[in-house]
Structures are given as structure tokens and as C-alpha cells.
Design a protein around this nucleic acid. Structure first.
Lengths: 335, 335
DNA sequence: GTCTTGGGTTGAAACGACTCAACACGCCTC
DNA sequence: GAGGCGTGTTGAGTCGTTTCAACCCAAGAC
């Protein structure tokens, strides 16, 4: 069965293609009786609109893409969840792309998305200096909203959580518990969130005159955390507390420490970041720094549609949320 | 800046559009010198192919859609991960859609995907009887591969894990540990996986003459598990073991039991399903039934491309994997 | 009886890329 | 010098939809 087009429907209903189009797009402009005839024809032939043709005509698709660092990270799925309803109700369709923290995959996605003439883009870019690639999109009139990325020099709207503040909060909590030697475990420092969290942490440590050891995990997941712990345990002086750049890493760290018989929190405390659902369900419930995840997504989508609506006279907005400490068992022991 | 088309490039390079098209699609057919001229023109104008136009002409997009029950479930993200490389290397693009276990959302996604003339579809359908909606797609020449769905009556290729066997395995493990009263917690029974796991469990219980109590959680996630536990604890005789339809539910159950001061596994054992990464990292490491997740995705994608390649003389294939018991602390106590 | 008005409908012109038959040109052969 | 060959290039036609000026026609105004 070869695909049926509007022409076939028109013929079957004895009207012109223009009328079929009207039935589909502005039914109120078509006479009752005609409309019905067209609709039965559509049903009988099993006609399905061809979106490519629509888009070609419209010059733009109705897809909103969300490019995340890792779909397997609950943080991002929550962000996506937050954005979806808003996009949906605006008649858009969400496309999720996973860059896997890899610049080349991100690049490939961006190229494809540009070819698809997406309506807009929410992205957590892999590195800090990706602006040139993104600006190419904005130059081609594709609005870009940065997610979880501070109000920097970039010419885009953005939503973010104050990661420096979050880093400070986590470190302050550890200091308050009496720790005097702290390790930081986090993925590529090039990822701004990681850098900021570390910066906040470092600031507090310096103020308090505390030793800080930073480990660079290969990536921000469970395996990365486990591996970093291996390194850490090789130190002559093993720190008594670990601040992980996100909860997945923290879970990995927890596994690593437990495997080596190090008691959490008695011998080593752990604090994560994001407060994903699994954090509370971990072997030792994880302390963490909570981010308003779905709100991030929702706000980002909102900014995107605002930008689309405002057109020329749009000025970029940068929304920053404050994270919040959630203390649990993994930092419960006082020294 | 209005979008530049092949025509603009052609003009700038002093050639015809046909030649530009050739440079893009069959560069070897174009003379070296011409090719270079066209390429500089492309670079200078910042030309980007218009995918809608391509697709319109081709009659088909290069998108492969994966429709899952829940993107936040690591099981599915792993399946997606498994499928991605294969789709990628076949020149396709993956689109992930989340049905959220909701028939209407699934339906909406299917409609949109059909309008987009996707290359093919990997789907874990919400209910068992969704075949009519899917057959509409196949009637329109869109190949569909069922994921995690047994070799039933359906006219599709499929990959699946033997869920009845998995259910039996889990139940047998509990019986072996001496439990004589077991609860099953699982989402809508209409979801075939849930039904099958329950069936396998029930069969073993009947053979062993053991009491089985089944609870229907609203959905297959952490919250669903927590809520079901509330119900279960209301029973006059509280079961001594719980078999959860997936690990998220099991994590929820673990939270629920812990909240009510019920010790796991001493007072109540738990076994989950899927063996997601978080299962091992839980407060009490969860026993589970492991599925070859990424292999499911990879095989599904393979079947899809096989079907596309074989065309007319394709016969559907149903691949079934065997799951595997992973015993951990949550079922460690003997009675 | 002519003139408006306006609800319905029409048909052709876009949109941008791809395809393919036709052609142009240089070179070689007989 | 006619014919054949091979390599490059062309341009018109096509995909399916939307849009919009033009048109038709019946009803109401004068």
C-alpha cells in the first residue's frame, strides 16, 4: 500500500486539496456537510498527514530538543519531565538527545537538530566554551536555553542552580561536623557545574583552613565514583569526608568504601549532590544538596517559548535557583 | 538572516542546484575543482541542509523511535543505550518517547511518529491488546519491533525475556529460603511483563502449597512500592517475603518497610526484578532477577534493520532471553 | 434589477532537496 | 570527419502540504 496523500482524499471526497487542508487546519471555515464528507474519506483511506511536507512549508518543525549529559541520570530525566508538559501544551514535541558528556556526540546532535530546523533547544552543554557551536544555532534563528548553566557571558536565556553556593553548603556542612580533611570527587572539571561546586567547596575549606584533595573522575556516574575511591584510598592520609559532584558518583563512592571495609559515616562521611530519589534509598541514606529539578525543566521550557513569542524584542533572562542541604545518615557521625 | 537554500549556494558557486546536491550526496561524481568551489560557498553562507525537504522527497525519515514505559527507569535507559550505537552506525537517529504507562500518551506518540514517517519503531506497548494500533503502522509500512514482549500472536518481530521463568525463579528462591507466605507487588496487571512475572510466581507457590497475596500498585515506580506496602501491612497476617515486579517498586517497598520499622531481610525479605545498578547500592542490597538489558536493545535494533533490509520476503523473528537470579542481602536470612 | 456582502470553495504557486534524462565537451578510433 | 565513449553538468519535474488571490453564488439592501 503506497501512502495516500491529500490529493487522494480530495478526489475521494469530491473536493479540492485546498478544502481538505482547511478541514484539517481550520475546520470552522468549512461547511458542515463538506467537512463530514472529507472526514469520512480520511477515515476510509486511512490518511495520515505528512509532517515533512508540513514542516517544509512552515519552514520550521514543532520539535523541541533537550540535549542532556546523561539520560541514565535521574537528575536529567526529572528535568525532562518538568519540561514536557509545557512543551506539550504548546503543541510541541519533545526530542531527548544524550550527549553522553562527549563533545563529538553533542556536536553531531546539534548538526542533526539544526537540519531538522527544531523549534528550539534546551541544552546542558558538555563544556564551558561551547558557545561558538551554539551561537551558530542562534544565528540561524533557533533559540537556545541553557540548562543548569550559570549566568555567564553567553548570549542565551538560562536556568541554573547556584552551584558555587551548593558547593559551599556541602562543604560547610562537613566542616560543621568536624571534618578537617576533605576529598572532592567530580567528573571533567571542564563541566561548569563540577568546577563551580568544587570552587564553592574550596572557598569554604580555605576559609576554615582545611585540607582539600580533589579527584577527577572520568565521568559522573557510579563507576566513576568507585574508581576515584580506589585512588583516594591510596593516599598516605585518607580524608574523613568526601564531597561528590553528584549522587551517582556518591553512590559509587559508597560502594567503593564499603567494598574496602571503610565504615560510612563513622570512618568516612559522604555527601552527594542532586538529591535524586535513589539517594534516600541507598545502603547508607545519602546526604545531598537538592536541586529543584523539574522546576528547572519547566522554567527552561517557559523561557524558550517566551523567547519564541517575543521575537525581535526579546532580552535574555537568566534564572538562578538556590539549592538546599538535605542531611541524612551518610554525614551523621560527629568526629 | 533568512535561511539559505541550495539555490543560494548554487548561485554563489556558479553552478546548478543539481551539482550542489551531488557534492552533498555523491561527492565522487563531481570534479575536484567544482566540489571545492561548492564547499567554500557552503561554508561561507553557513548553509545547512533542510531535512524536511529531504524527507519529503525520500518519503521517509531516518528516525528510529523507541517508545518506553518510563524513561526514569534505568531498565529502559539501558535498553536505549543498547540500541543507539547500532541505529547510529546505520545512519539513523534515535528518538526516545515516554508513554508513562499511559495508553493515551502512547497513542499520541504513535500518531506523531506516523506523521513523521519514522523509519521504524521499537516499542514496549502499555497494554497487551494494543496490536490494532500497531498494525495500523505496519499497514503503512512502518516496521515495528516489540521490546520485552513475548512471542505472542502479534505479527511483529520481538525481543523478550522469559518473564514467567523469571517469576518462577524469584519465587523458587523465596521458597527455598523457607518462606511460606509471599506477597507480590506489581503495577497494572494489564502490562504483560507484570502479568507473566506474577503467573510464574503463582505457579511455584501453588506447586509448593504456599499462600500468595497479590497487590496492584498504581505504577511501577518507587512511590508505587511504598504505597503497596502500606496496604500489605494492614493485613492480619503480614507475609514474610515480597516479590516486586521491578526494582523501583522493590526500592519503594524497602523504604516503606524500613519506615515502619520492619527489618529487611530478618522480618521480611524482598526480591526485585531487572537488577538495575541501584539495586546493589540500596540500603539493603537487593536480590533481583537480572535481564540482559542492553542486549535487548541491541537485538531489537538489529531485528528492525533486518526487517527493513529484507523487505517483502521478511519473516518475523521472536528472540527470547533467559533471566538470571542475583541473590543479595535482602533475601539473605533463612527462616 | 443591480449592487453588496460574505460564506465556501478552488487552483496554482510556493517551500527545498533529490533524481534523471539530456546534453556538452574533450578525446580516441577507424 | 563521423562516430563512440566517458566524465561533468544541467534543469525541469516531483514529493505533499499550506496559503492566498480569485471566484462562485445565494441572500439582503436599495
Amino acid at each position: 500500500m503506497t501512502t495516500t496523500s491529500m490529493k487522494d482524499v480530495a478526489r475521494a471526497a469530491g473536493v479540492s486539496v485546498g478544502t481538505v487542508s482547511n478541514v484539517l487546519n481550520r475546520p470552522e471555515a468549512v461547511a458542515e456537510e463538506t467537512r463530514r464528507r472529507v472526514q469520512t474519506a480520511i477515515a476510509k483511506l486511512g490518511y495520515v498527514r505528512n509532517d515533512s511536507a508540513r514542516q517544509l512549508r512552515a519552514g520550521r518543525s514543532r520539535n523541541v530538543a533537550i540535549v542532556v549529559l546523561d539520560v541514565a541520570n535521574p537528575f536529567f530525566t526529572d528535568v525532562v519531565r518538568g519540561a514536557e508538559p509545557l512543551v506539550d501544551s504548546a503543541g510541541g514535541v519533545v526530542t531527548v538527545c544524550d550527549s553522553g558528556e562527549d563533545v563529538h556526540r553533542e556536536q553531531r546532535h546539534l548538526e542533526i537538530l539544526e537540519e531538522q530546523r527544531v523549534l528550539g533547544l534546551l541544552i546542558t552543554p558538555v563544556d564551558g566554551s561551547s558557545s561558538e557551536r551554539l551561537e551558530r544555532l542562534t544565528a540561524h534563528d533557533i533559540p537556545v536555553v541553557l540548562v543548569d548553566r550559570g549566568a555567564g557571558q553567553h548570549p542565551h536565556c538560562s536556568v541554573a542552580v547556584d552551584d558555587v553556593y551548593g558547593g559551599r553548603t556541602a562543604a560547610a556542612h562537613l566542616v560543621e561536623r568536624g571534618h578537617t580533611s576533605i576529598a572532592f570527587i567530580g567528573g571533567p572539571i571542564a563541566i561548569p557545574q563540577v568546577g563551580d561546586r568544587l570552587a564553592g567547596c574550596r572557598a569554604v575549606c580555605e576559609e576554615a583552613g582545611i585540607h582539600l584533595e580533589a579527584f577527577t573522575s572520568v565521568s559522573l556516574n557510579v563507576a566513576g565514583g568507585r574508581e576515584a575511591i580506589e585512588q583516594m584510598l591510596g593516599l598516605p592520609e585518607v580524608p574523613t569526608a568526601v564531597f561528590c559532584a553528584n549522587d551517582l558518583v556518591a553512590l559509587g563512592a559508597l560502594q567503593g568504601l564499603t567494598m574496602h571495609g571503610v565504615k560510612v559515616p563513622e570512618e568516612c562521611a559522604i555527601i552527594g549532590y542532586d538529591d535524586i530519589d535513589f539517594a534516600a534509598a541507598a545502603a547508607v541514606p545519602l546526604s545531598s544538596v537538592r536541586q529543584p529539578r523539574s522546576q528547572l525543566g519547566r522554567t527552561a521550557a517557559q523561557l524558550l517559548f517566551d523567547e519564541i513569542a517575543e521575537g525581535e524584542d526579546h532580552t535574555h533572562r537568566n534564572v538562578v535557583f538556590q539549592p538546599e542541604l538535605v542531611a541524612r545518615a551518610s554525614t551523621a557521625a560527629a568526629l
